[in-house]
């Protein structure tokens, strides 16, 4: 009985070693591995940049409406409209300043963009690996030894 057990262990040992090596290979740097700090930074930065772009577009749109003359409006009505449009444009600019400040704050964390950018795939590209998990389980290995 004891011999059987020792024999089994001796047979299983190289197989387990091989399996561990295979697992280690999967985690090698060749795989797309992303440091989490960089990921956080990049996601936030991308979000802020998108917001900035959207705001800039809206500011351009609203700026083009400035000085529009309203037909048949009294001078007081015209002035009120100008004031309102000014408020809209300034409110958007205020928001833009906030976004720029948030970007500055994020940048000053000390994480350079170079570290972050290459490692980050698009969210849509993060998916299951094409190869299934091929790690053999213990029962299969014992069976194969028995055979």
């Amino acid at each position: 009985m004891k011999r059987h057990i020792i024999l089994s262990i001796l047979c299983l040992a190289p197989l387990l070693t091989l399996s561990a090596q295979e697992e280690a290979d999967k985690l090698s740097p060749a795989e797309p591995v992303i440091p989490l700090d960089s990921l956080r930074y990049t996601i936030k930065m991308r979000e802020l940049n998108n917001r900035r772009e959207a705001l800039q577009q809206r500011i351009n749109q609203e700026d083009s409406r400035r000085g529009t003359i309203i037909p048949d409006a009294t001078p007081a009505q015209q002035e009120a409209a100008v004031m309102e449009q000014d408020s809209i444009c300034l409110a958007l600019r205020s928001e833009l300043v906030e976004v720029n400040l948030a970007i500055d704050e994020l940048t000053s964390q000390g994480i350079s963009t170079n570290t972050a950018t290459p490692a980050l795939p698009d969210a849509s590209t993060i998916s299951l690996p094409t190869q299934p998990n091929t790690r053999p389980n213990l029962r299969d290995m014992i069976d194969s030894v028995r055979k």
């Binding site: 985690l27 795989e31 591995v33 992303i34 440091p35 989490l36 700090d37 996601i43 993060i126 299951l128």
Partner: peptide, 17 residues
């Protein structure tokens, strides 16, 4: 040393992000 995103199913990845 660091947290590493390895791989994950799509739905989970969005939640994680």
């Amino acid at each position: 040393e660091s947290y590493i995103l390895y791989y994950m199913p799509m739905k989970r990845s969005f939640l994680f992000l």
